[in-house]
């Protein structure tokens, strides 16, 4: 069930690009949108992304004193809540490959008084710079589709999790009903670039967003990739009819 892409080529939205170039192209997208990322998230999802993240928080089963790694944590929505839950005895690491996003996240969380139990690390999800068996929970929300080698990233997440620890992947997925799918396509290919143009003066980045969602593995394929990497007790929850799916896996 591994993701099918050649060794040298991969997709960037609907375009096929060299694997080495995708990282730079994705970085440019997020450098461009970082400043207004939260505002755009609220506009594009009509605020529903907060509900998806809250559901993720609920399924994390995280407790006081535990260690959490939030990959592609961006502006820190989830990391902030995790930091409150694990308390001063615990630790949260907010990791993102993009330094612009990381700076926005760090400033936002510091302004909200989230300090002491949180670290910020610029890291590539494919080769996480942490020791084996470090974290009780690893999350990646709306980040996996931007990773060049998703299989390598999932294996890397498995490595840094403690046995019994869990991985949660919150990501856009495939709507279950055709009607929803058609409405969603119309919305994401026409309204999203227009909103991007109006708010961030960057329609291209939001066209990439819509295209990258379509190119991302569907629910069952992603679950298969998690199983192949070595996760057990895998499963997923469809949110908003499968527009978004929350995948869960446990490290044996």
């Amino acid at each position: 069930m591994s993701e099918q892409h050649s060794r040298d080529k991969t997709h960037f939205g609907y375009k096929t690009v060299d694997s080495e170039d995708k990282e730079k192209l994705v970085a440019n997208v997020f450098h461009s949108v970082a400043g207004r990322y939260d505002l755009m998230n609220d506009l594009m999802s009509m605020g529903i992304h907060r509900l998806w993240k809250r559901f993720t928080l609920e399924l994390s089963a995280i407790r006081k004193g535990q260690k959490v790694l939030d990959i592609a944590g961006g502006t820190g929505d989830l990391a902030m809540k995790f930091a409150e839950i694990v308390g001063p005895e615990g630790k949260v690491v907010l990791a993102d490959i993009n330094d612009s996003m990381l700076k926005v996240g760090r400033d936002k969380l510091t302004d909200q008084g989230i300090i002491g139990n949180i670290d910020y690390v610029q890291a590539n999800a494919e080769c996480l710079p942490f020791a084996d068996n470090t974290f009780d929970l690893v999350t990646i929300s709306f980040g996996l589709r931007n990773v060049t080698d998703k299989d390598a990233a999932i294996r890397s997440m498995l490595r840094v999790l403690r046995p019994g620890g869990r991985l949660l992947i919150l990501e856009f997925s495939k709507p279950r009903h055709d009607v929803i799918s058609k409405v969603y396509d119309a919305y994401s290919f026409s309204a999203l670039p227009m909103m991007g143009k109006l708010v961030t003066d960057d329609a291209e980045s939001y066209r990439y967003l819509a295209e990258s969602i379509r190119m991302h593995p569907d629910q069952d394929t992603l679950e298969g990739m998690m199983k192949d990497a070595g996760f057990v007790k895998t499963g997923y929850h469809n949110l908003t009819d499968g527009v978004v799916a929350l995948h869960k896996g446990i490290k044996p």
């Binding site: 509900l51 559901f55 609920e58 469809n238």
Partner: peptide
């Protein structure tokens, strides 16, 4: 609505998006 891969809702109505919002 949230629904797991077996088609069952975890936590019933409270786990649906309106339930989470409430």
């Amino acid at each position: 609505m949230s629904e797991d891969s077996n088609g069952e809702q975890a936590g019933g109505w409270l786990s649906s998006m309106p339930g989470v919002a409430a």
